Simulated scan of single mutants.
Amino acid sequence: MARVGFVGLGIMGVGMAGNLKKKGHDLVVWNRTKEKCQALEKEGAKVADTPADVVKECDIVFACLADPDIAMDVVFRDDGILKVCPGKAYVDCSTVDEECSNKIGDAITAAGGRFLEAPVSGSKKPAEDGTLIFLTAGDESLYKDSQPYLEAMGKKHRYLGKTGGGARMKLVVNMIMGSMMNAFAEGMTLAESSDLDLSALLEVLDAGAMSNPMFRLKGPSMAKGEYPPAFPLKHQQKDMRLALALGDKLEVPMPVAAAANESFKRARMEGKGDLDFSAVHGSLRKAK
């Protein structure tokens, strides 16, 4: 079985890489802080010293990085992905804007490699369970070649055409999710302030047309004022910012998303960035 690389073992990447290892793939990993590689190393993964070393040892490398700046750094740094690109394949699962994805894709292609963007829909638990949704775009031959790996990490994958399509789709999805979460948090705060039973609210919502897995999963913890991180609030706010920038570029009015972004920004300023994005509820409760 071909050796596969994985760069970025954060809250998402560690689960994704773990599922590749569980499916029997020979795995090489790298992370900026090596301590995060230890669990996979114990399971038999090889730990590389640099991103370039991962590419040297693998024909295909996946990455899941926190933001556009880190995604660019891992590719363009002196010991980065771009140093060993001819004949290699790079699949970037990071959530970045279209401009970032195109810069990376163009550089990889110009160096003789193949590039696929593949941002994911899902959070920590789906990453651990192998039930992510991959929104791919770029080199179609690489999309076909990467399917066994995508299927080891996810339940569904969709090809969306040329590079940029995956990035745009992911920002739209996360913008909708963030706006929904902000409205949900406001509703829970209003219900609590109205002396309503939050468990009754959750039951009513779940029985009607607004029933959805996010409310069902997050609601009980939010009612307790607990926000264990599955998708960090700082990442949700970053995605809202990028989605709003896309809206500005395309002259699409987005007043609801803009208002939600302000709530996430306030929560982040209050030190809630590393909590789950549902912690926007804690910020609203504090403000009432």
Rank of each mutant, 00 (worst) to 15 (best):
A2P: 13
R3W: 01
V4I: 15
F6D: 05
V7E: 01
G8H: 00
G8W: 01
G13P: 00
A17T: 07
L20H: 03
K22G: 06
D26Q: 13
V29N: 02
N31K: 01
N31I: 10
E35M: 01
K42Q: 14
P51W: 09
A52V: 04
I60S: 07
C64N: 14
L65Q: 04
D69Y: 02
D69K: 12
V75S: 09
G80R: 00
V84C: 09
A89K: 12
A89V: 01
A89I: 02
V91T: 06
D92M: 05
V96D: 10
S101D: 13
N102C: 13
T109M: 04
T109S: 14
A110G: 04
R114N: 13
E117V: 10
P119E: 07
S121M: 13
G122E: 03
S123A: 15
S123Y: 03
K124L: 14
A127V: 03
E128W: 05
G130A: 12
T131M: 06
F134E: 11
G138M: 03
S141R: 02
L142H: 10
S146R: 01
Y149K: 01
R158S: 09
R158H: 13
L160C: 05
L160S: 06
G161N: 03
M175N: 11
M175T: 08
M177E: 07
G178H: 02
M181G: 07
N182C: 13
F184A: 09
E186H: 06
G187V: 04
G187A: 15
L198P: 03
A209N: 05
M210D: 07
M214H: 08
K218N: 07
G219V: 06
P220G: 10
E226H: 08
Y227P: 02
P229S: 15
G247S: 12
V252A: 11
M254A: 14
V256M: 14
N261E: 13
N261S: 13
S263P: 00
M269A: 14
E270W: 05
H281A: 09
G282V: 05
S283F: 05
A287I: 03
A287D: 14
